[in-house]
Amino acid sequence: MSLFDIREIGLEVEATAGVLDGCELCGQCLVLRRSFSSRAASRCHAAGRATPWDAFFEHETADFSAPAEEPKR
């Protein structure tokens, strides 16, 4: 590390790679790699939503009949 060192942290740079045309590069789909797939980005692009995140929540909140598991000890 030099005296006046500065290094970017995280995924913001990588967030521009491999996204679909029309995506506004909010980067949420990359940040949330855990459960995201190209399907989320496709939905986002296809639905014309502002961000993949909006599409994700539209999908996630649609069905209350099958609750997700809470973490177990």
């Binding site: 005296l3 006046f4 500065i6 290094r7 970017e8 942290i9 995280g10 913001e12 590069l25």
Partner: peptide
């Protein structure tokens, strides 16, 4: 030291690790 930089577009920001002297600067 970490620098947080709020970008113009809502939802976008960057963060940087900086040395002690860069923080002083």
């Amino acid at each position: 030291y970490v620098v947080f930089h709020r970008l113009e577009k809502l939802g976008r920001a960057k963060k940087f690790h900086v040395s002690a002297l860069m923080q002083e600067l």
